[in-house]
Amino acid sequence: MVLVKERQLAVSISEQAAQHGLHPVGVRPKFGEYIKAIIKRREFITVLASSKAQAENQNTYLGQIWAILTPLLNSMVYVLIFGILLKTRDGMDNVIGYIVVGTFIYGFFSSTVTSSAKSISGNLKLVQSLQFPRAILPISIAMKEMFVLLPGLVIMMVISQIAIGVIQGSEAIHPERWLLLIPALVMLFLFSSGVGMILARYASRIPDINNTLPFILRIGMYASGVIFSIDRWVEHPVLQAIMSYQPVAVFLNLARQAVLAESNIPLDWSKWALGLGWALVFFIIGFVTFWKDEARYGRE
């Protein structure tokens, strides 16, 4: 009897609430509404991204110079170790250009994934203070990494083109292809934020993911041909195919098509189609995955 009574009471409360236009707390919004709410706050995404990019190197004496210095030093280290000391340069026409493009592009992917995974735990104050669609966080973090990458891209272009000019001669420089870097980066952005959103969901539940990520990203670096040529060093045909057609390797290939003059990496439109496919698939899967758990982010 008591149970029945309680039940009736509960029903009447939810009915009353609906009558007065109240909605239940902590329920995931519908997919369409969610996208609408994000589009309505598109300015929020860019402002958050640019603010975070500015804050990045704030606590150092050199400040924003680090945005250029960090990737520059990074690629110099790899060129020194892999290009000069270990001589893994077989299969590349221009070891400096090859490694520099690889480290800058992979650096973007790796830092986007690392910081997206922390997008809920690292912004807990913001999440707990204000209600907004949480997918804005991983997306704006990916955008922030893009902003941080831009000055580095200038350095990447300067070094790689000088290297091509010196090693391969000025006729190997193709300025008309440079614009292709833009679609390549847009695709990489979509892909990375897709991966970031998937990780953000699970890392908000299992913080230990953040501890394993550096190792996975390091394996990813060697499995994607960032600093050596997959065609030259991986002999097993199936393994070679998997390694060359997986998304990260494809995006590296696209960036190299745009910037370098490697005889092994000719302009190949089928790779661009593949890149676009990877980008869309991962972005959509990531977005839906993230949205599924929307009601839980920031809740204890």
Partner: peptide, 24 residues
């Protein structure tokens, strides 16, 4: 917070101001 039991209905988006008030 995720309630372990019970229901909460609100109008609009509730806004909570706590002691630790820093956003970023």
């Amino acid at each position: 917070l995720q309630p372990s039991q019970g229901e909460i209905y609100v109008s609009g988006i509730p806004s909570l101001l706590g002691v630790s008030a820093v956003l970023m």
